[in-house]
Design a binder for these strands. Structure first.
Lengths: 147, 147
DNA sequence: AAAATTTTGGATAAAAAAGATCCAATTAGA
DNA sequence: TCTAATTGGATCTTTTTTATCCAAAATTTT
């Protein structure tokens, strides 16, 4: 019961793009800044592009950028673009999968849990995920702009 | 982002045992009543037994029964006995897994989601999952005692 | 004590999913 | 045209999931 690595990477990518404003950011930059294997990142970006969350520009000076404003994009959209719709248990998505589901009370619990989770993720927008202030510090521990 | 088949089976097993009161129920009966592959069920029962949720009786007339009252057993216990502790994202369980986690806001969202989910599952008891009343019906659609 | 029934525990295996990588083709700026 | 960037499809490896097999052990009945 956990998200895929690809989803985690996808969220990182989207957060990074949000911090860069409307700029088109090359894959290599995102990859090294956010610790994401570059080729894997390419696949993830393609999924997010098909879901209408980011735009891919090919060729020289190409890269990725958000397709919509960070205020409009929810965490739920990002997660479901990469994981498919969240169901928690197969019986919630496909009642035929279990012959008990029409009367099963457990089914109802999974349904409620699903709704709670989706509501929470749907209430978080990309703007809520950006670290806006960079604390003053000289420390060498600062490994990237997200510190 | 969904539960394992084993967890689904485990919940079915526990619900079945709850409906049988304190009786010791042989594996074969649970298997056929609840559509669970018998050998797989054996492994699942062993996990639940180690977690202190059911008792296994070996030998002739052996089988499974609840170790505690269905009022005391939560769905969360059953799920975590079979899935391990729920975290949703690796960074919630192990902050070292991601070098951003100390300052990352996404991390906080996964943590909140985890807590919401665990609270919900923790509030559901086995007694809440039992179908107590069997509706009067002549219908041939009734395929088992859970209708 | 022997027979019958039922689970154990360890090994193994098959299938599915996850995580990544490779590269020829394509795109587009300089 | 040259260069730098992505695509899309194939491939591959690893891990996880979902089982299955069976000799040994346990326990009740005869």
């Amino acid at each position: 019961m956990k998200i895929n690595r690809a989803t985690d990477y996808g969220v990182r990518l989207m957060v990074y793009l949000a911090t860069e404003g409307g700029k088109t950011v090359p894959r290599a930059e995102v990859s090294s800044a956010m610790d994401i294997p570059s080729e894997f990142l390419a696949k993830i970006a393609q999924h997010l592009a098909r879901a209408g969350l980011l735009e891919i520009k090919q060729g020289r000076m190409g890269g990725y950028r958000l397709k919509r404003s960070p205020e409009e994009i929810t965490l739920l959209e990002i997660v479901e673009a990469l994981e498919g719709e969240i169901f928690l248990n197969i019986c919630v998505g496909d009642p035929k999968a279990c012959r008990f589901s029409s009367t099963c009370k457990v089914h109802l619990v999974w349904k409620a849990a699903r709704e709670g989770l989706r509501d929470l993720l749907g209430s978080i927008r990309l703007t809520n995920l950006i670290i806006k202030e960079r604390p003053l510090q000289n420390s060498q521990e600062r490994c990237c702009k997200y510190n």
